[in-house]
Design a binder for these strands. Structure first.
Lengths: 210, 210
DNA sequence: CGCATCGGATACGGGCCTGTATCCCATGCA
DNA sequence: TGCATGGGATACAGGCCCGTATCCGATGCG
């Protein structure tokens, strides 16, 4: 039963999120003072403390938005796989199209991960968020193997971790040397080989049907 | 022809490096003010500015020390490979023993990488340091394939990049969830498979000789 | 033995950021 | 229409850190 105006709220929150996104990308998590974020949003620090308790809270809000986008995109990519040539490559190509937004996100999430590692309470929150995202990836991997007509011989959660590791590790390298290593080049080169190596032909006679 | 005392210098530098190492590990690169580093070294900021120009310079000094240690260790591991079971695993086991020191270094170098990505001039320096280290790794990979009696079918520099990516990406995950993912677990699981996938038996009849 | 010089300590001015406490206005229901 | 309440702005006090300019003592050569 709120009496006063509660309409402007979401607007303000959205503006703060957008401003945070940009500021974080440019100056990093530590480098972004709350002050500067508010400035960019055209608001004051009062507005911030009214909507969030800490900078971390702000980050997790961004995390959820991003995870949703990633899952949607991956999911769509798998959905639209026709009897194409190489499903693994097709999905990867789809992902490497993220470019600038993904670059920004990589910078932010990695720095935040380091921050979390040094702050156990934050790490627990982060692990939970990560877990939820990985769950979705496991699901997608399952569908992918299905399409390939192969059965994985390893734990899919572990494989999801590996793909994440490769993605992030190689992204780091290509960001440091943009013209020496293309993003996803490593993934495109090695993951198809690996997918083959960790799976075996599914029982013959059965196809992809339910 | 320095007249005055120049003997205390290396001592002071060493103390600053040690203090920086610890402080960086605990509070990160951005989180470590020059002031605090000096404090821990039992020196004043005057001493710092007399020995280094910036915090970055301090970092690169640490980088070189660390790279040397890594190369030495890897090199020794490959040297001592007897006709053992699985050379890849043997080397990896050797590396995962780094534990705490490696953990510290991972935290520091990753944060610094992010910093570099946002500062092109710094990125160039970092890329150069990285390159030198990777050169050594390529050399070691060469020896490893030799021992396996296999010939790589991919560019070794690219493969070196991949192993680095996996190492760092998976380390990140295991640091966030220490009891859910053991360090190097991903590498131990997948790299041997991959090594196989990216090489073919060397010309028969020839062995490991020069 | 004295002095030139080097290495590190001290002192200074200034900037930025945080978190809270308080205030004001706009809103929308009674 | 008036008023209770919520949302955001302002003001305040304090802390940390930077980089430089200057100073002092120790050292080892001549």
């Amino acid at each position: 039963m709120p009496k006063g105006p509660t309409k402007r709220r979401p607007q303000t929150t959205a503006r703060l999120l957008a401003a945070a996104q940009e500021t974080f990308a440019e100056r990093g998590f530590y480098g972004s003072s709350i002050e500067v974020i508010c400035e960019r949003a055209g608001l004051t620090r009062g507005a911030f403390y009214s909507n969030f308790r800490t900078k971390e809270e702000l980050f997790f809000a961004l995390f959820d938005l991003h995870a949703q986008r990633v899952v949607d995109r991956l999911s769509a990519a798998v959905d639209e796989l026709d009897a194409a040539e190489d499903p693994v490559r097709a999905v990867l190509r789809r992902m490497s199209a993220l470019d600038e937004a993904e670059r920004r996100w990589y910078l932010l999430s990695t720095e935040f991960t380091l921050h979390a590692i040094r702050h156990p309470a934050t790490a627990r929150s982060l692990a939970e968020h990560d877990r939820r995202l990985r769950e979705e990836i496991v699901r997608l991997l399952g569908r992918l193997f299905d399409r390939l007509g192969r059965r994985p011989t390893v734990d899919l959660d572990s494989l999801a971790r590996l793909t994440t590791a490769v993605h992030e590790g190689s992204l780091a390298q290509s960001l440091v040397e943009p013209d020496r290593l293309a993003p996803e080049e490593l993934a495109v080169t090695y993951l198809p080989l690996l997918v083959e190596a960790v799976s075996e032909p599914a029982a013959t006679g059965r196809r992809t049907g339910s």
